[in-house]
Design a protein around this nucleic acid. Sequence first.
DNA 1: TAGCGGGTCTGTAGCGCTACAGTAAACTGC
DNA 2: GCAGTTTACTGTAGCGCTACAGACCCGCTA
Lengths: 350, 350
Amino acid sequence: MGRVTLKTVAEKVGVSSMTVSNAFSRPDQLSAQLRERILAVAAELGYVGPDPAARTLARGTTGTVGILLTESLRHAFTDEISTAFLAAIADELTPSGLALTLLPATEPGPIVPARDVAIDGALVYSCRADSPALDWLRRRGLPLVFVDQAPVSGIPSVNVDDRGGARAAAQHLVDLGHRRVGLLNVGDEESTTRLNDWHSSRQRRLGWLDALEPAGVTVTVAQSKHCNQDEGYELAKKMLARDRPTALLCFSDAIAAGAMLAADDLGLSIPGDLSIVGFDDNPLATRLRPALTTVDQDVAGKGRAAANALTEAVRRHRSNLAGGTPAKVRHLTLPTRLVVRDSTAAVTPR
Amino acid sequence: MGRVTLKTVAEKVGVSSMTVSNAFSRPDQLSAQLRERILAVAAELGYVGPDPAARTLARGTTGTVGILLTESLRHAFTDEISTAFLAAIADELTPSGLALTLLPATEPGPIVPARDVAIDGALVYSCRADSPALDWLRRRGLPLVFVDQAPVSGIPSVNVDDRGGARAAAQHLVDLGHRRVGLLNVGDEESTTRLNDWHSSRQRRLGWLDALEPAGVTVTVAQSKHCNQDEGYELAKKMLARDRPTALLCFSDAIAAGAMLAADDLGLSIPGDLSIVGFDDNPLATRLRPALTTVDQDVAGKGRAAANALTEAVRRHRSNLAGGTPAKVRHLTLPTRLVVRDSTAAVTPR
DNA sequence: TAGCGGGTCTGTAGCGCTACAGTAAACTGC
DNA sequence: GCAGTTTACTGTAGCGCTACAGACCCGCTA
């Protein structure tokens, strides 16, 4: 016995397969009575409903959107900020009935998810602008939304005001009288310089310098490849061993947490000997002792905005194919806000 | 100008569309030279590669597996244990080139992801056995793997030894001389009784009682709907206000963390006045003060096992369709281990 | 009684691709 | 120099569904 399809059902009921299709997909196209009969026969035959793959091909839509995440998906799940972001997206997508497919950005191998998985559109979250996976998505002509990426003309984007937030953080230190400040950033020198890569890292750095340079503050910079507590610890330890700054500006709260540990190891008290500022306003920030001064970004809002921008882009893309109005591209920047807690203080006079 | 398809390319090159298909999908089927030419023309025409939707229909495979998560995806992303689980799955799936689609288990509305999204198989993680979404997946005849669910014959499953771990935790308290113990569980009375629902919750409860009842310990039970710190706090507060037990067994470390806060609020010292045991060995457990005695489960191992079981099931499903050997179903139970830290102590003699 | 609109149902023609079963030519070995 | 094998390519026949353009019938108006 072959597979049960629309046709099987249609033959058994004695109607055209089109009518069975309508029974499932467009109930208003047939009488309630016939529909009942068809559904009954379908149930009897074990027919579950139109095959998604075939429907996708015939209709041209998949009911799924992708999200492209950097290298290992592991990081995306480990970091509290990115999980909160994903959670918000998932929540916002749920009512629309769209499922979310995680696209690992692997390059080698014959299967390239970004090229081979059927999706209606995709979110691109904090990926290198030169990522091959991103290139595939663009070549496919899929509706995309960039998040935490350098905006590109023609592609809607959602960002937070990294630069403004960083500036506020740095100004806070300047106001407290700090004259020697260390920057704990992510990425490497090359990539923060090159446009489009590590967008947030670059923007935050610019923001910090916006405030520090005019004030004539002595700045030392260290960068780590990854954004986690362990790297922050190592980075801070090295920096504090050298000509010690009186304050640290960190790319993230996770890195700041590592820095606090390092300071502790070196017998430095916070904020007495060292002020530390993070970024993100990770839940972690309030768990730390002393509670961390940081820059709040609305990750949940970012997730919601991204999800909405994408559903919107997908919708427009469809109507464009049907000869609708051309897409209107929005670049959104959400505000950030300095949150002063207990990890920063006026520099101690000697 | 219509869309660029295989045929467009084939016509321009002057070969059959089959040859173009082979150029992309089975390079060994044509000469390297012709393949070059085809790829060149394809690039020139802006042809990216075979359309995933059409390929899916023709081949019968999608390159994606789903994961069905309870109600809100939000919880799955908020809890450190489930994110670690997801991370492990994602990692393990990546080399196989399978993408992971999150299936929200929404029921209302015309679009039901579990029914309408094209996938090759799915993981079912800690869902109610009577979830309609799960029902759709089963009706579709997709290869499934159950995780943290009551094993069902014919469906591979991955579990941890909830009961054994819980028993060890309870025995630990008995050995310390505790005679009045409170259980902080999740779920409700009804669902932990009914078979198949809230499997872990039920198993842990059974495990606790395995050790407590023979020892003649006085047991009080409280249950909360969700598994998080806030609920744990409320639950513990209520329980500790009544005839106070000398120890608490908690469904999870998150709940235990809430309980610790509640104890603190009530002026109880841990472990002096109250011993607390969690479950999971969440990273959180070592951050707490005192460090939490808990039951370790290997979430990463669980994720890897689940991913492997699923890829295996998908593989077998395919070869079964092609007349291969019938599926061999494995039910895996990973060990758990009591980790004694500082939140438990011998009951204070009065 | 012709004409019209609306509610139901049907048939055709794909969607874009790949499996499979070829055919034709180029090699192999003796 | 002829069967036997290999390599390189082609044609057909779907995969299972839906869009779209009718066809048919019924009751209603003028």
